[in-house]
Every structure is written in C-alpha cells, then in structure tokens.
Amino acid sequence: MLNSFLRLQKTVPEKFTIRDMIAASYINVITAHDVVAITLRAVVYYLAKDPGVQKKLQKEISDAEAASKLSTPAKYSEITSLSYLIFGEDSRLFNPERWIERELRDVTRMKSNVFTFGAGARNCIGKNLAMMQLTKIIVELYRHFDVKLAGPDKEWSVSGGWLTRQSEMETVLTKRE
C-alpha cells in the first residue's frame, strides 16, 4: 500500500502531497483497530477453549505450507483458499465447520447476518482491510505458536459499551516445532 502511495505521490505531487500520503497511510493502518483487536481476542479465546479446533486450523495451515501454498508471511490471496479460517442457528457455539459443511446459499444467508462491521449505508469502509488483517494475523499466529489459556477453566469477562471489552483471558504462547 505504501509503495502505491509513494508512486502516486511521485506521479502527481501537486494532487497527492506528502501530507496526503501520511494521512492515507495512517488511516489504512489505524482503520478498525478496535474491531480487529476485539475479534482477534475472541478468536484466540475460543480456539484456546477448544484445542481440537485449534489443531484443525493449524493442520490446514501446515498442510498449505507443506504444499508450498503459503509464503512467509502469508499473502492474503493465499489465505483466502483456507476454508477453516474462522454463526447460524447454533451461533452461541464455537463451530467453524458451520461455514464449511453448508450449502453456498446457507453460507450466503449467514454472512448477510454478520453485523461486526455494520451493514448497508453504515457498513464500515475499513471492513475489507480489517478482515485481511485478521486473517493474516490468525494464520501467522497459529502457524508459529500453540496458544493456551493460563487458566483454562476460568471464563473470560466481556463487558459492552461503545466497544466490547474482554478480560480474564490471559494466554500462554508456545513456539510450534
């Protein structure tokens, strides 16, 4: 992204100043950081609560890596083919398979009910960037580490307001071999 901004600034410096480039870079880095952080904490928590699901995700990542389908770090275009990257009638259960073992029309219907980034005219313009950040972080995190909760029997605390806050979910990362 920064390279594109630099090329644009060099091509039309009178229309895209250094100040414009800094502002665009800042917006693209900071966009949706709260939603990314909140979502990432939820993914880490639920994967740590269900080690079997975490192992399935890591196996998919390892298999893609072994097949030379992932660079380091993984590109978003490579990640989109991973079907296990983390709703429906059992939305209160952590069940990533609901997105994989369903008909396309069911997945489309479920996606239409995801309001993490708003909807319609109020849809977050940073949604695609946030999703790219999330999936890349998740792949690299679980590619290199096993993640466990320091207190696996302890439930997290979630409080809501303008933004959701999660706590009581201390984690332990162990380098994967």
Rank of each mutant, 00 (worst) to 15 (best):
L173H: 07
L2F: 14
F115L: 10
M132F: 10
L141R: 00
I138G: 00
K15A: 07
T135E: 13
N28V: 08
L129Q: 07
A67G: 11
N123D: 09
L8P: 09
Y45F: 12
A48I: 03
S62I: 09
V139G: 03
V44M: 14
R98D: 11
T171K: 01
I18P: 09
E103N: 10
E78L: 08
L85I: 15
A42V: 09
V29M: 12
F117R: 03
K10W: 07
I30Y: 07
T135D: 13
R143D: 00
R105V: 13
S167W: 07
E103F: 13
G88L: 02
V44H: 04
T39M: 01
A121N: 13
R143V: 00
I30E: 06
Q58V: 07
L40K: 03
N123T: 15
C124T: 06
A67I: 12
I30H: 04
T80K: 11
M110D: 13
K136V: 10
P96M: 01
K49G: 03
S62C: 06
P73S: 00
S112G: 08
E101V: 12
K10G: 04
D146Y: 09
G161V: 10
S157M: 04
N95I: 00
K49N: 05
K127M: 14
E155M: 02
T17A: 01
V158F: 06
M131K: 08
I30F: 09
M1Y: 15
A42F: 15
M132K: 14
V158Q: 06
N128D: 10
L40V: 06
V139C: 04
R109I: 12
G151M: 01
L141C: 02
I79R: 07
R165C: 09
I100W: 06
M132D: 10
S91H: 13
A121I: 15
Y46N: 13
P51M: 00
D90V: 02
M132I: 15
E168M: 02
V12I: 10
P152S: 00
I61A: 01
S157N: 05
L47M: 13
Q58A: 02
N3K: 14
L8A: 08
F94G: 00
F87T: 14
Q54F: 00
N3W: 15
I86V: 14
E140D: 08
L104D: 09
S112D: 12
G161K: 04
L8K: 15
R109K: 11
W162P: 12
E78I: 11
A121C: 12
T171H: 04
D90Q: 08
T17K: 04
L129D: 05
L8N: 11
T72Q: 07
A37H: 08
F115V: 10
A64E: 04
Q166N: 08
L6A: 05
L173F: 15
G161S: 12
T174N: 01
K136M: 13
N128M: 03
S62M: 10
T11G: 05
A64H: 07
E168P: 00
E101Y: 12
L70V: 13
R109T: 13
Y84W: 11
S159Y: 11
